[in-house]
Design a protein around this nucleic acid. Structure first.
Length: 363
DNA sequence: TTTACCCTAAACATCC
DNA sequence: AGGATGTTTAGGGTAA
């Protein structure tokens, strides 16, 4: 009965997690390694020069999505990285697909990878693992926004109620396990909101029960605006994402380069990065995670990296004391507080992706 | 405090 | 008949 709209987490992360990094962020980190002389951020264990070959041509959406990825415990894997991969798979695919570690198709279409959002580690020290929530955090979007996105994401810009359900479930894993009352809320919104219109069914082309629903064009800008606001409100952990240029670029499907100056600033101001790690850096578990396949330059092709060939890049996340570490190939350490400005949480990614889609939609 | 917006639940009608 | 869909009402929470 309670309102869970905030979806903010309050639990602790497992001590070691795998992270997912969008190529844009990867590339930008790479581009700024020169400001981090003590860190060799990205290189392959088998080919240290490989990092420079991982320079995907930044796709249209990558600028927006790589602008910020604040980290939140609520959206973090609670039990295992595979759980994270499943629960945060935002691809509209079948359940079987979602069991696949490579199930990031939808995000990949936008060159986005889910990277969990969490506040600095100090905010949730020492809760027990048993207190971890077992399901993904509730998306911050209102039902109107969810319906809007679902309809706009459909080829014909119209969906039956069941199709809306399916879209939401496929894209927001929270609703897979949520009590079914949310469906009632969806119908309630469809009926009550002036933004949505029920279309007369064509009896000759029966779609089964119910009608098709579409977005009223006159309310479309307002719905889009709400999405943008949600996008801003849930990405307040990043000065970068609050840069209007980013969303403006999203609206125009333009590439806006993320200003990563803060990276060097943060790193240079962070004593943990200029000294050795305060404890041994042994992650509790390791996994390979799917990361978007990147287009390699010809040079890279000539120096093949088996990890790159597989489409996987291995790196590890874990916590130690009050710091969060991202261990990249080559045993490099990076305080995640400095990384987060390169990351979008899944929700922000969602918003960004939807906005991008919408921006390139019917207008 | 008010207002607007949102979420949730429930009851009921209609359709398939 | 039963489930899905659609409408309406009611009540509570949150933020501006």
């Amino acid at each position: 009965m309670g309102n869970e709209r905030t979806g903010t987490g309050q639990s602790v992360r497992p001590e070691s997690e795998c992270l997912y990094m969008c190529p844009g962020a990867w590339s930008q980190m790479e581009n700024h390694t020169h400001t981090l002389p003590s860190l060799s951020l990205i290189h392959s264990p088998t080919n240290p020069s490989k990092a420079l070959s991982l320079s995907p041509s930044l796709p249209q959406h990558s600028a927006t999505v790589s602008a910020s990825l604040p980290l939140s415990p609520a959206s973090l894997p609670q039990s295992s990285p595979s759980h994270l991969l499943k629960s945060h798979c935002l691809s509209p695919s079948t359940p079987s697909d979602q069991d696949d570690l490579t199930c990031l198709n939808w995000l990949h279409q936008r060159n986005i990878l889910p990277l969990s959002k969490m506040p600095p580690l100090s905010q949730y020290e020492s809760p027990s693992i048993s207190s971890l929530p077992s399901s993904p955090a509730k998306p911050p979007y209102s039902f109107s926004s969810l319906i809007f996105m679902a309809i706009e994401d459909s080829p014909d810009k119209r969906l039956p109620v069941r199709g809306i359900y399916e879209w939401i479930v496929n894209n927001f894993p929270y609703y897979r396990t949520a009590p079914s009352g949310w469906r009632n809320s969806v119908r309630h919104n469809l009926s009550l909101s002036k933004s949505f219109r029920r279309m007369q069914r064509d009896k000759s082309h029966s779609i089964g029960k119910g009608s098709l629903w579409c977005v009223c064009s006159e309310y479309r800008p307002a719905l889009l605006e709400v999405l943008k606001k949600t996008h801003y409100c849930h990405s307040n952990n990043s000065s970068l994402l609050n840069n209007p240029v980013l969303l403006e670029a999203a609206d125009h499907e333009q590439t806006a380069m993320c200003d990563t100056m803060e990276i060097s600033d943060l790193v240079l101001n962070n004593p943990t990065l200029s000294s050795n790690a305060p404890c041994s850096l042994i992650p509790e578990h390791e996994e390979l995670v799917a990361i978007q396949s990147v287009e390699l330059t010809e040079e890279a092709e000539s120096e093949k990296d088996p990890l790159a060939d597989s489409g996987y890049i291995e790196f590890h996340y874990y916590q130690c004391e009050q710091y969060q570490y991202l261990v990249l190939p080559g045993n490099s350490d990076l305080d995640l507080e400095t990384v987060e400005i390169l990351q979008l949480d899944a929700e922000a990614q969602e918003a960004a992706g939807s906005l991008l889609d919408l921006a390139g939609g019917s207008h």
